[in-house]
Design a protein around this nucleic acid. Structure first.
Length: 274
DNA sequence: ATAGCGCCCTGGTGGC
DNA sequence: TGCCACCAGGGCGCTA
């Protein structure tokens, strides 16, 4: 489940390899991943374009083209973007591919086919609604304890639901919501507005630290995630609660409990998190 | 405006 | 061994 650290890892790898490359071909094996273009239209727009930059906003990847347009990719749960030699056969779940002028393909593989591609033209063009409404980047200077306090103020929803709301904070998914709340010692079901200023400060620091720590390990691979070079992340070895139901809390030894909060599988230490 | 829920989709798992 | 219900979950559309 690629979240901010995983998508950022892919972004860095793709940027290093893709910038300056020219698109020679486009293959779309599953047209419904394209949200606002037909395969033929996408090919017409992309072929001949040079890649100018690879950016990230929340969990979206933006491949910027030299004509001011962009290809906006969301990996959702099982999507992968990897660079391979063009001779590499498609996998059973290859949904699309872009061939480059250096003999390689940018392959998009996605088992569950939730991932999406949007083409955005130079002027306006359609943005994915979630991207247009995206909240603050948690690793940017704009994200301060005061920002988080404002976000939480007056919200009766569980604090975990607020962390998952991309319109408030960008890029946090189920894994890092659980991990940040553990580090902060806060129960995920608490109404966001019930957090004390001290708790808001701890949660702010925890969000940043867990994202930074995971980024340093190349992200988390629980099941499907692979980076732009086809390699898994390493942070799963350092998770405190996610996926550790029944195992002892690393801090106090109490078994980690799994329950449902905000409709999501949620992992907590019932002793450390209040 | 906010909160909650079902849907999309496939592969892996566990029960019988 | 086979079959099937169930689960994973981000974004989105719908409801109240």
């Amino acid at each position: 489940m690629p979240e901010l650290p995983e998508v950022e890892t892919v972004r860095r790898q793709l940027e290093a390899e893709l910038v300056g490359r020219v698109i020679k071909g486009v293959r779309v094996l599953l047209p419904r991943i394209l949200k606002n273009a037909s395969p033929a239209e996408l090919a017409e727009r992309l072929i001949g374009r040079r890649l100018a930059a690879v950016e990230r906003r929340g969990k979206f990847l933006l491949l910027q083209l030299d004509d001011g347009a962009s290809l906006i990719v969301h990996l959702r749960m099982t999507g992968r973007l990897t660079l391979v030699d063009a001779a590499t056969p498609d996998g059973p779940h290859t949904r699309a591919a872009i061939s480059l002028d250096d003999g390689r393909d940018l392959r998009f593989d996605d088992v569950r086919t939730f991932g999406t591609w949007h083409y955005r033209g130079r002027d306006a063009g359609s943005l994915p609604p979630a991207l247009a409404a995206m909240g603050v980047e948690p690793l940017s200077d704009a994200f301060t304890p005061e920002t988080l306090a404002t976000i939480a103020a007056g919200r009766r929803a569980p604090v975990k639901a607020v962390l998952l709301d991309q319109r408030r904070i960008a890029g946090i998914g189920n894994i890092y919501a659980d991990e940040a709340l553990f580090r902060a010692g806060i129960d995920p079901g608490r109404p966001a507005a019930s957090l004390t200023p001290g708790e808001v400060g701890r949660l702010h620091a925890s969000i940043r630290s867990v994202l930074i720590d995971s980024l340093a390990k190349g992200g988390t691979t629980v099941r499907d995630y692979l980076n732009g070079r086809g390699s898994p992340g390493e942070f799963q070895r350092f998770l405190d609660v996610y996926g550790r139901a029944g195992e002892p809390c690393r801090r106090c030894g109490t078994p980690i409990v799994r329950r449902k909060v905000a409709g999501r599988g949620t992992h907590v230490c019932p002793r450390c998190q209040r």
